[in-house]
Amino acid sequence: MRRRRSISLASPVDLSVDLGRGLILANPVMTASGTCGYGEELARFIDLRQLGAFVVKGTTLHPRVGNPPPRLVETPAGVLNSIGLQNPGIDRVIAEKIPFLARLGVPVIVNIAGDTPAEYGELAARLDKVSGVAGIELNISCPNVEKGGMLFGADPQLAAEVVATVRQVTRLPVIVKLSPNVTDIGIMARAVVQAGADAVSLVNTYTGMVIDVERRRPVLARGVGGLSGPAIRPLAVYQVWQAYRALSDTDREGGGGGERSKVPIIGMGGITSARDALEFILAGASAVAVGTATFVRPVTVLEVVSGIREYCQRHGIRSLRQLVGAAHREGLA
């Protein structure tokens, strides 16, 4: 392998990210919920302590067996899934899953999903004092469940209600995971930030369908699924670009903000490498998450960390914050 660049160890790059309420990540790269379980599976391949944060599988109040198979079908450069939030329920997650991650010391962000705003509130309240839990991600964008899920993510008032309910019961940083299946993601981003969200993460999957032409019916048992993987990357980068613009003139109190978004965006959608991750950062993401690529190459998430560091050294970037949203400031060709 040729290495033409000399990498100076004397100039460390500051990759840290402030997600609000005291949650500071050592680097901007995290796992995307639902693509990495609760850590033990992935820990066989990578040192989880090198992650910025670990975002666990979407967790509900009661255990869910998930949707009937088929649950997954490949699409061009992507996958369409309909897992249906299979998880052991919040009690077992707290008792059996979080301690493993907490022992490692990696910041744990718990993704929660409810059928009603009150359920989100109850989930958040139970997590509030759990050792090792560094933040909560509200899943208001799952396309694969009957109730709740994407319903909340498509209506700014409902979304705000969920956030406000959670805000009242926890001091933990609250991240809201947004659906791209909306006309204007900026409206959703502003609504949840004004309701008290500390950060937004986007995008969740795009709703999609694959039809088996021989059997003349949808491949997935539930018909619709969520599309992820490299296929959606340009779509997702644009959603981050749009959200960054929308949040640039919104601060947490809803008043006028500065030119740059003060609200951190966690960007994701088809990231397979540091190059992909940098697109999101330049579009306005302060942090990124690796999802579907983990299925294919479980070490990707750490390769992204080292690749971003290397990029910063190559370009003389002292702090990653210099790059966040930089593509907006460069103007268009």
Binding site: T35, C36, G37, E41, L42, R44, F45, G66, P69, P70, R71, L72, V73, V79, N81, I83, Q86, T294, F295, V296, P298
Partner: peptide, 14 residues
């Protein structure tokens, strides 16, 4: 079964 990841995270091969 149709398998996404092979190591227990995608929950497809049920």
């Amino acid at each position: 079964r149709t398998m996404g990841c092979g190591f227990g995270v995608c929950l497809s091969c049920v």
